[in-house]
Design a protein around this nucleic acid. Structure first.
Lengths: 173, 173
DNA sequence: GAAGATGGGACAGCCATATTGACGTATCTT
DNA sequence: AAGATACGTCAATATGGCTGTCCCATCTTC
């Protein structure tokens, strides 16, 4: 049973089923996700503007750092944006020598993306901002909570995309 | 890499300090937050385009629904955007009669925002998409996990803003 | 009651990031 | 040789942020 029964709140009538939770619990999750996510990325955003980039550039950098030699098509799937949108971002990053490409060996049509040395350094700088924020939240909440945090978020990802996300984390089915 | 371990045997060892977690744990959280958040809002986005609105309209509708008779200044703080950006959105919503304003009684300069009947209906429709996604994730993860999920997210919100968020949820302070 | 602060609105223009559709080229597959 | 695939590019468009400036109505303070 996924619903807590706190007698004092019974005024708001309990849900008919665990699949149809009380509105307040859902609103709480929505709001915490919204504020938590935006606050975590806020420090990164500041670093990005200082360097003349936007969030889109960070997302590309992040996933290229995560999976070196990623083909463009894989990055497109991860980001769920169009080729054109990604193209602009990759051109910016290549122009500033943060990302470089090499032709695939098995399939020479592919361009495999990886960070240059300065690209890796910049990504590491941005990552430190994320680490600072998340580490503090993890530490304050405790390991048990962190596991729950992961579990709920996994449940938000549709079946057919979950495998791709887990693969990033070396947990490919 | 910025991992605190020294020799090669420490790859699978626990972090040196709970305040400086292993990179993989942080990356996992970042990725789950990114994918979880975007997937949760995806169904809402679809409804919005069908009706000719964007995410910004939803955010305004959501928080007006949450706190009827909210003054404009309070909504500005919640959303952390400029008056001009919010103005456009509120004009759109007012033009389609989803939001209405009345002058404040204590301070007549204020305009208190609330949803019209059709505005409330539309917000409820959008909320159902959120409820469907989050309820499923909550139910799959279990109540223990949900508590942890909340706890970690709370920790991502800086001290000075946490109160505002909790106040939305009737948990002031 | 006048001066200043505050809540809200509006105009103009800019930027980042996303979209669609069409088309081109190199390379792989059949 | 034909077709599919991986990638790139041009052009046009929309959204949702931003800054700067100016304005009005109302509240507060002296």
């Amino acid at each position: 049973m996924a619903v807590p029964s706190s007698p004092s709140l019974e005024i708001f009538s309990p849900p008919a089923s665990p699949l149809f939770l009380r509105e307040d619990e859902v609103r709480r999750g929505v709001e915490l996700l919204f504020f938590g996510y935006t606050r975590l990325t806020r420090s990164v955003d500041e670093l990005l503007v200082e360097h003349g980039f936007g969030r889109a550039h960070h997302r590309a950098l992040y996933f290229i750092a995560r999976q070196p030699d990623l083909p463009v098509s894989a990055l497109l799937k991860i980001l769920s944006i169009t080729k054109q949108s990604l193209g602009r971002v990759l051109n910016d990053l290549a122009a500033k020598a943060l990302v470089e490409t090499r032709a695939g060996e098995v399939d020479r049509r592919q361009k495999l993306l990886r960070l240059t040395e300065s690209g890796a350094a910049f990504e590491a700088l941005l990552f430190e901002a994320l680490r600072t924020g998340l580490s503090a939240a993890y530490a304050a909440a405790g390991q048990e909570s962190v596991t729950g945090f992961w579990r709920v978020l996994e449940g938000l990802i549709p079946e057919d995309e979950r495998q791709m996300v887990m693969a990033l984390q070396g947990r490919g089915r």
